[in-house]
Design a protein around this nucleic acid. Structure first.
Lengths: 296, 296
DNA sequence: CGTGATTACGGTTGACGTAATCATA
DNA sequence: TATGATTACGTCAACCGTAATCACG
């Protein structure tokens, strides 16, 4: 279970080919074959079906472990090197789409005024990408949004010891087309919409999987998948009746053709949090607290 | 960042000695020294202070990663081997103290009646221990309790793909000595007790760290630490006025000298969940659903 | 047949143990 | 000075590449 072996295993599984994975990793076909053989021998089971190459049941299971494992390994290395390296002259901020609001501009302006030598970059990414890049050190600071119970932290994959601070909490609403029969309701119970058609937009709206666990049902089946980080596109699809989406009320308000209907049960809020891994009080920690303070 | 190196690193940090760690791992003193040197060389920084041996800042940081990393590595191996191995003739159940209630006996009796050949063992452990042993395959099924927002899953360290199902949700109460000034209150706001004296009983009561994150304050300082899995002992300490503890109301009811006072804010519940890593519908999955069904 | 995975085999690298050296309480 | 970490060095195994072989489409 050497990380190298795991890395080639996930590469082979992703590529669907030993030789392709070998090219990608800079190994020979032979070495990749030996890696997989070593893993399979170690675990005592076949991990990949050959010709065509596809993971077995055990292989699928191992893949579920290998991803987080390798990510965390990278995170550990990045964490230490960041601790050693000189305080950065450049801060890259990763923001999930719905965390990217106009309020962000105030503390950013503050930082740029007080520390004009500090280069600041803002990058809009999906939620998973933000945590991943934060772990590997590509990002210095993350601003992530999500759904949670009131006063409850977001459920984030634990890639390591991160400092998290709440920035905002606001109401959630279902984006209903204006002509939808329920569009004039004062509020809605989520469970009533379990059988409706939903848009699966994991990076912009609340992920459907989360709706399922929150309501304990198996509903909220997707009618359409929306990938990317652009909210306007999602709203256009919702307005056109392609499916429902759960968003912060604020993001739906004033969009033509859409009525935001608040969700009354279960009791849930939209929440944004700042994440960083700076234990001391460097510019990162300062910016992080500035971001929280600006909206309190 | 070879796992072997990480393993010896945590061993050395725990033992506070190279030679002691070497004995423990079956290496020579020399090999351990080389392992640490390799790690330090790879990461480009000192990880341990020598004479006496104690982790540096970077070392502490690495330790925070290494634990979960190695645990997850073990979990992956255990997961695969379990998948391969024949369905067990023995099921070991790990239960956290407050998840161990009389309701458990009903589904257990059901299993023992329908599958008399199946050996069943019940083991009461701390919450961390249950997840750890579940990950490494020592336990087959876990029953864990904790605090959460209503209808929200427990926050568990993600050691891998686990099936979790809610078993019970019930009210929480502060265990106050009968003569406490607030003992006759109808209910309490948690924030009002942030400056009180608390008992830190991470395995039995709600961990104080969780109270802090839930209320966003830095209070709930421990006056006494209580280790172990015996609730009666904790209740005795609480009744004697050594400090407060947050527990399910049910656990405090009827205990002489203690008044359970419900917590009204923030809105929180005591919740128990079943955990297992069986994807198919073996005896584990059957028992797990039996456990949830019995209390619905 | 041809593409692509496996096996055989050799060179190099790296890992661990023995033993000598160094350093600190 | 004694305990315990480091360094030197030799041996052995593991790893990867080259090349031949095998197998499936």
């Amino acid at each position: 279970m050497d990380p190298h072996l795991l890395r080639t295993f996930v590469a082979v599984a992703r590529c669907g080919s030993f030789s392709e994975a070998a090219r990608e990793l800079g190994y020979t076909q032979s070495a990749v074959s030996q890696h997989i053989a070593a893993l399979e021998n170690d675990l005592g089971t076949l991990l990949l079906q050959r010709r065509p190459v596809s993971p077995t049941v055990a292989g699928v299971r191992l893949l579920e472990h290998a991803g987080p494992l390798l990510l965390r390994l990278d995170a550990a290395r990045a964490d230490i090197t960041r601790l050693i390296a000189a305080p950065a002259a450049r801060i890259t901020l990763g923001v999930s789409p719905l965390a990217m609001t106009s309020r962000l501009t105030v503390p950013l302006a503050g930082i740029r005024r007080t520390q004009p030598l500090l280069e600041v970059a803002v990058r809009v990414l999906g939620r998973e990408a933000v945590t991943r890049e934060l772990a590997t050190g590509t990002l210095d600071l993350g601003l992530i949004d999500g759904m949670a119970a009131p006063n409850d932290p977001l459920h984030l994959p634990d890639i390591g010891p991160l400092t998290t601070m709440a920035v905002t909490e606001g109401p959630l609403a279902v984006a209903l087309p204006a002509q939808h029969p329920l569009a004039d309701r004062a509020n809605l119970d989520l469970a009533d919409l379990a059988d409706a058609r939903w848009i699966d937009a994991p990076d912009t709206a609340v992920p459907l999987a989360q709706l399922r666990t929150a309501s304990g049902t198996n509903g909220y089946r997707p009618s359409l998948r929306y990938e990317g980080t652009d909210i306007r596109g999602l709203l256009a699809l919702a307005a056109a009746g392609h499916g429902l989406a759960l968003l912060p009320t604020q993001a739906i308000d004033g969009i033509p053709g859409l009525s935001p209907v608040p969700v009354c049960a279960p009791r849930l809020v939209h929440r944004t949090e700042v994440l960083h891994s700076d234990t001391s009080d460097g510019p990162l920690a300062v910016l992080a607290t500035a971001l929280t303070a600006a909206t309190r």
